[in-house]
Write a protein that binds this DNA or RNA. Structure first.
Lengths: 115, 115
DNA sequence: GTGATAGTTAACCATGTGGTTAAATATAAT
DNA sequence: ATTATATTTAACCACATGGTTAACTATCAC
């Protein structure tokens, strides 16, 4: 049972599963930011933010460019595009399953209905 | 404290971050399956599969319809559509950042450059 | 009834996660 | 050289995760 986030898609979805990390990505979507700027609005310590940045880096979603004692964080889009593609690839099937959902809801009925 | 009120997205992305769960979803995309049928191709115990199914259920991605001593699992698409929408919403920005990636790669040089 | 079948729950284990504070590192400013 | 600033690393904590085996529940078949 080694690093089960070694698969790129695993790492990408894992990175997206945390609201702090999604917020970081949302802010970086508007342009690169320094670590300190990135951390400022969050109510958590700098090391906590640093850990989130490491998760994002390991998922290939973030590049850090060191410039003096400052680190400029840049969003990298490619892995997220892969994630979107995975979802899109199955969307046709899911949409085919929407009728199955209706059937399921009808067959089980409201929670308190006598069986 | 920032509230991103995005707990469902957390659950959806977390569910997608595991290759076993993605494989389960991929198979369910072709139509409902019983738990046993679902578990058969995986090299892990039934309780392990059962746990994955519970994660998927809690993420709202799976419905289980009990019929006799058998449970029919049906994929529910809606949360996945929300996840895709989250990604799609930021795609325009990421694509704007592709040039920033090029700039980053040029400015930092090859990976093994001496520090 | 007895037994087989489908599946979950319980208890456990090793490791991962998300957070903390304190110390370390590196660079800039004086 | 000293000090302040930006950021990471280390050590720690409580809890979650992904897996196991064993025991339990529920249903079907005889």
């Amino acid at each position: 049972m080694v690093n089960y986030h070694s698969v790129p898609l695993d790492a990408t979805f894992h990175a997206l599963a945390d609201p702090t990390r999604r917020a970081i990505l949302m802010r970086l979507a508007k342009g690169p930011l320094l670590v300190g700027e990135l951390a400022q609005p969050f109510d958590m310590s700098l090391p906590a933010v640093s850990k989130h940045l490491r998760v994002l880096s390991q998922a290939g979603l973030l590049a850090q460019e060191k410039s003096g004692r400052v680190r400029r964080c840049t969003l990298l889009a490619a892995p997220m595009r892969d994630a979107a593609q995975w979802i899109r690839h199955y969307r046709q099937f899911w949409e085919g399953q929407l009728d199955a959902l209706d059937h399921f809801l009808r067959s089980t009925g409201p929670p308190m209905e006598p069986k």
